[in-house]
Design a protein around this nucleic acid. Sequence first.
DNA 1: CTGTTAGCGCCTTCAA
DNA 2: TTGAAGGCGCTAACAG
Lengths: 355, 355
Amino acid sequence: MSKTPNRSRKQRAPLDIRSVAARANVSIATVSRTINRVPTVNAKLAKRVWTAIHELGYVPNTQARALGSGRSGMLGLVVSEITNPFFPELIQGFEDVAIENGFEILISSTNYDPKRMEVCIRRLLERKAEGVAIMTFGIEQPLFEQLAERNIPLVFVDAGPDRPGVSLLKVDYGHGIRQGVQHLAALGHRKIGFISGPMRLHSARSRSAAFLHALKECGIAARPEWHVEGDHTLEGGIKAMEKILECASRPSAVMCSNDMTAIGVLHKAFRVGLRVPADLSVIGYDDIQMAKVTIPPLTSIQMSRVDLAKAAVRALKEHIVEGGNPQREYKIDTHLVVRESTAYPPGAMSDLKSS
Amino acid sequence: MSKTPNRSRKQRAPLDIRSVAARANVSIATVSRTINRVPTVNAKLAKRVWTAIHELGYVPNTQARALGSGRSGMLGLVVSEITNPFFPELIQGFEDVAIENGFEILISSTNYDPKRMEVCIRRLLERKAEGVAIMTFGIEQPLFEQLAERNIPLVFVDAGPDRPGVSLLKVDYGHGIRQGVQHLAALGHRKIGFISGPMRLHSARSRSAAFLHALKECGIAARPEWHVEGDHTLEGGIKAMEKILECASRPSAVMCSNDMTAIGVLHKAFRVGLRVPADLSVIGYDDIQMAKVTIPPLTSIQMSRVDLAKAAVRALKEHIVEGGNPQREYKIDTHLVVRESTAYPPGAMSDLKSS
DNA sequence: CTGTTAGCGCCTTCAA
DNA sequence: TTGAAGGCGCTAACAG
């Protein structure tokens, strides 16, 4: 009993590649090749192997596979927080595309917590992720240097370190926001407020700047007291709206840096008896699913999560597979979706009536 | 050059446990023990090992670890769809608790698609999940026999196969729903409608039955035409509400099998000019975060995602660690959260006025 | 308490 | 085209 395998840990026989090989009367190498669809396997043998696999109910062990091959087949996806509706939609898209491309995905959420971020990175390292998409819209990026140092392909949104292996998803914030401002201007709005995201975030700054720029293009004066900083949360939207309401005069329209903020604005407006859009027009950003069913349905600027996901996976894949054609940047478009939270400003209709 | 390691795949030296051992002048066993915090390691040596680890930037390889130890350290979490707001909150809770208990988590969403479910199961098998929580509230359960057969600890919501290793999270739907109905009855409602979930789901049937039961308790007659089947989605809520509006007479309150349905009802009411709660009271179920900020904020029945998550991880853990104390069932409580979508029925106030 | 030595389940040269 | 054999990086007996 010298070579008896240690069977103290498990009751049943291990049910590994060897069992399959034995049952199919081939070597384990052939089984391995069959599973991996190496084309040079004799069709007869392959069939025998597959039958054995099915009869036994054999399932290959991913960890062993990864260890042997040196490829984990996993892509990491780091998001800010999963309970923010923007992200599940992104995750869903990312997962779909990743699976299509033969990858599995490892999701981590940072919750804006530096400690948690370190844990995330560690996990990605330990699990040997072959590529990582960092979609946090945050300032956590420097922390990901550890990944870049180990030559793991990375993709960031908007901005990231300029290294080989690092790709960027460049979101064209300007286009959607310009459409939004023009939409408001066309309706007759001249008094337009803006609730930004946290200004430490690149994406928030870009949106804010794009708004100011679009305003100027339309020949509308910016009013600093109506330009307030939010934090991309519901509560932030509510508070920001409160600030705007405290101003001597009130804008006839408010544009928001994301939909959650806009929903907060809707909520606050409801609280103080302002009707949307009769008394106040509101535009959101992101076009999350929820935007279709707010009361009233929210006019918003769509940034396609599916596009983001697709581009991210594609960018990573180009780096991972040899012979890929890695680009540095991938453009992501945005555009306005008009629903029912925008209308003529209050004055417009009474002017018509009085004439 | 007989023992030269194959360095064709990677540029740098492998940076494995051996490098650490060499640098710290100890055996790899000692390194392994140090990493795994085996208490019998000499403090001096341990310190040397840790320094070496930090200096080298060594990160253990999870797959190798899993392979060697036979423990993957992963718990599976299967949900229906990640874009349904109920689930991200659950996932978040599950992840937190799992990490606290030293597990990693593997998320799969079935999207109600049988093919996708098979893929989920396969992944869980391939990755050697040590336990799986199936929180789909669905009928997919029979498909998970494959897991049960392999003696993987499982936890289901409400109902599951009666096998060793399988635990159940028994949600007390009745309590919350009774509170809801009593709340409406106390306000004076006698005409109460109900929009159920898909009746093929256990959870939906339970909620529906609990509603009928509570109605009887309060001495209120059930009106079948106001009891319509939805599908737990927004669109389903809208359609179901349309059906109710087609009835000869209209209920003064509608209770919903989940919050998404209730939001659909709110939306439909808005569309047809019914004011909530003045003309119609609405109660949801689940108390998702969004419920706080609907217009008006939604009275709902809370089923704690954190409780669910905690119980699930605990149930699995009891089975996994030896010396655990596995129970078959874990109770999950529900209770009413009153907000602003419920009020006196329309008649009540005019009665007061006319007197 | 530490080091030696087999594996864990699979992949992948290398020879046949 | 197939099989034999040596790792992949780590854990876990077993001696010392």
